[in-house]
Amino acid sequence: MSDHKIRLTVDGGPVSKTVEARQTLGEFLRDGCGRTGVHLGCEHGVCGACTVIVDGKAVRSCLMLAVQADGTEVTTAQGLAAPDGTLSPVQQAMMDEHALQCGFCTPGVVMTMTALTAGGARPTEAEIKAAMSGHLCRCTGYQGIMRAARKLAGVNA
């Protein structure tokens, strides 16, 4: 079993650590970087709770090895709000539309929505639905989540 020294950017700050080959990116972010906002649910790719943004793309952090993130830029839900606590537009929309109850799926949902609307992109209703199909939410029935996403995208439903 090999150990590897990795350097990456997590939520805007440099991180340099040694990881065991088998450690997933999700585990590394939680245990090695204090990003407990990365929620590990199923740990085999089904639920979407662990979604983070790696080099601009929403991916499941349980399906990537930490060592594979060497040299990348990773954003978690903990890197979205401004330093003074002002929520990001996605976070604010999720709150305004009551898009969460227990909050377990929320960090993953927020990251997909952030990637989807990055740079002012305006996804269509179909694109929002397709992207959200990658997330399981046991509480909300998805309606609040869809309202938040539509609001961000400027889609009227």
């Binding site: 790719g45 979407g48 979604t51 793309k57 929403a58 991916v59 499941r60 399906l63 990537m64 997909t112 989807l116 397709a130 992207a131 199909s133 990658g134």
Partner: peptide, 9 residues
């Protein structure tokens, strides 16, 4: 094939 998030990898 899978979802937006799985197709990215």
């Amino acid at each position: 094939v899978g979802h937006h998030q799985t197709r990215n990898r």
